[in-house]
């Protein structure tokens, strides 16, 4: 399950099988490049509600059926190829800020 001492990101799509796999791969590369120790968890959007409390961020290619406590970003740019770099920056910026605040707390 999710390790509480590490930032985790939920990567969701409708079936948890097709587009989320593409996003998983992209984010793995991105985090490696940025030297961020982040746990990626692939899931169906329907599973997000029960997994969100331990996650730093939700990244979903599909529409969010409900609102979540955990911040959520739309990952459609990784599928359409339009706006990928902006989304990369947004995710990295968010996670760096998140990791900084959680280190201060501990």
């Amino acid at each position: 399950m999710i390790d509480l001492n590490r930032a985790s990101v939920l990567v969701a799509c409708g079936a948890g099988i097709a587009t989320s796999t593409v996003v998983m791969d992209h984010l793995e590369e991105l985090f490696k490049k940025e030297n961020l120790d982040v746990l990626l968890v692939q899931c169906k959007i329907a599973e997000v509600a029960s997994l969100q409390s331990e996650a730093a961020l939700i990244v979903s290619t599909t529409i969010l059926p409900t609102s979540y406590v955990t911040p959520a970003l739309n990952a459609a740019p990784y599928i359409s190829g339009i706006g990928m770099e902006e989304l990369d920056k947004e995710i990295i910026g968010y996670l760096k800020a998140y990791l900084n605040t959680s280190t201060v707390k501990m």
């Binding site: 948890g16 099988i17 097709a18 587009t19 796999t21 593409v22 998983m24 791969d25 692939q42």
Partner: peptide
């Protein structure tokens, strides 16, 4: 097979 598909999906 969700996780073995990355090459195809890419």
């Amino acid at each position: 097979q969700p996780h073995s598909q990355i090459e195809v999906l890419q």
